[in-house]
Design a binder for these strands. Sequence first.
DNA 1: AATCATGTCCAAACCGCTTTGGATGGTTCA
DNA 2: TGAACCATCCAAAGCGGTTTGGACATGATT
Lengths: 351, 351
Amino acid sequence: MNLKELAAKLGLSPTTVSRALNGYPEVNETTRERVMAAAKRHNYRPNTRAIRLATGRALAVGHVIPIATRHEIVNPVFADFIAGAGETYSRNGYDMVLSVVADETEEDTYRELKSRGTVDGVIVHAPRLNDPRIALLTEIGLPFVVHGRATGADIPYSWVDVNNRRAFQRATEFLLDLGHNRIGLANGLEFMDFAIRRRTGYTDALAARGIALDPALMTSDEMTEVSGYRAARRMLDLPNPPTAFLAASMISGMGVRRAIDERGLTMGRDLSVIIHDDDLSYMKNGEDVPIFTATRSSVREAGRIAAEMLLGIIAQPETAPQSRLLEAELIIGQSTGPAPRPEASHVPVAL
Amino acid sequence: MNLKELAAKLGLSPTTVSRALNGYPEVNETTRERVMAAAKRHNYRPNTRAIRLATGRALAVGHVIPIATRHEIVNPVFADFIAGAGETYSRNGYDMVLSVVADETEEDTYRELKSRGTVDGVIVHAPRLNDPRIALLTEIGLPFVVHGRATGADIPYSWVDVNNRRAFQRATEFLLDLGHNRIGLANGLEFMDFAIRRRTGYTDALAARGIALDPALMTSDEMTEVSGYRAARRMLDLPNPPTAFLAASMISGMGVRRAIDERGLTMGRDLSVIIHDDDLSYMKNGEDVPIFTATRSSVREAGRIAAEMLLGIIAQPETAPQSRLLEAELIIGQSTGPAPRPEASHVPVAL
DNA sequence: AATCATGTCCAAACCGCTTTGGATGGTTCA
DNA sequence: TGAACCATCCAAAGCGGTTTGGACATGATT
């Protein structure tokens, strides 16, 4: 059932039927109702492909996912972000198109999306230091919103980000207040913008208390369980080990916990741990009581906000770039406690 | 730059240019080369929207993700499956469109995708017992491939699945061979087809050895860390606790481990654990040595296979339904060992 | 009564491709 | 030499909508 057929059935022109369905004023109200009823009865739905060609709009938003060795992006965080953004698109009649491409072809993919008119805009994921995508997208004129920021980008652009620096600064201060002064950082990969900012938050907090940085207490790696485990194990082996850890994610926090447990130590008593919690739906940080003390910010909510912002930009391409900085809240869980007194620290009770 | 402009620049008709670019035979080879060169020079790329309307094909595949209370699907497994499928789509010039919709509107979404011509086919995720989507999609004539199977569906359909029954049967047998005869099962939600099959594998293996089922040792819940933790804790509190666990995923396995660690017990020595490992890229089961003994099957690979199957069906709609049953391999890790002798079991060494 | 505005509808152009059905000119073959 | 046959190209008709530019009553205005 298409427009022409429906119009024929109603004894009207396609023009009028189209206008009736799209709410244009130049159509008699009774006619409109008749059209609406007929459309519903024959469950007519306008063909997306035709609408797209006729209006010159794609009615779709793209998310490009580079895939390869550096698979940082196909991660749990991404799934939840997508879920949040997707809800917004659905509600506004937009499609979400995901392009899974090899790392090398990422820029080409954006060019294609633009020149073939597949999407009206894109979300840029996982920005890195001096991320080249921002200049590229600006140049080719494809509207975009960055999830995160790109330190070093010198042109204005729209973004939605968590205040990673502040979050890690607060977490560090919280540990310092508990008496910890050797705090291990199991950070994400530091060519990722968010990881750079988190590190800054950590170092700022230490500097403010006059505590010297110890490179042995700072690691940077993918946010996997194993990497958290390794980082913690290595630091616990130091002659002067940390009494607390800052982990970049729930998953790497679990690795840290494993290293702690493995030594017969107890998290929350012998060693404190704070993680960053993206509030993932299938990876809750406990239910009633949080397992980990955490800086929490819903990545799903960030997805919603970024999507709304992008749709706004698509509707009003000439407006100035927008941005939104979300604050993470500090959730107190069971994984932190006062620093053990020196002589007792790191000696398993059982030994 | 569009076809007409390019044709004008070349002094040719749009027809000829289109044919030249699409490899049709009725065009002179030197002309074709001239066209190709000009296309590259002006980096002309045909407009997707126009191609779609003209050819009547969407050149896109849909993935519908119901989102709501039952968020079983927005999970890490989904992200990896998507990555695998997405690669295949990209390679074949197809787009992947994700529809994130409320649970109640899922069926409606399929109807829309079909009648609006947004996609040429869909992948059905997370099939349940007697899943109604199979009949629906068959009825409306939208090509599809199911990731998993739907026990109870009485019409033929195409699917790609892991042999979940066999996997859990083998895992159970492995534990039995190690001397464990009280084995706890922390299963996924048992209205999900895969969970039903896994349970069957578990019960079959026990039955084959003449071991009576103990309902207290079988739980079914979402595959989160917390649910794994709770299931294990509850079972360990039993007067006659299990000496081994079967966990439905890496994440719930981590919860199980937490419950074990919490009691001062050691996984692999005091208690054995086997998980199902979907071989997720950012959640590796260890690197050199597997942490958990596991039944492993790459969900990403499943995504690739399902996508290829679907593209095949779209190309040849009249062929009979296809299917592919993947076998999981049993990976021996550090989480399993012989059952402790009765008198020693469950007594933490340190006490 | 002529003019004008208004409400309601339609024909036709258009979006940018693909594809059908020739047209044209040169070759080949009886 | 005329017919049949290629090889090569093009005009025009879709695909299924939207949108522009009227047409035609009807009622209000002067």
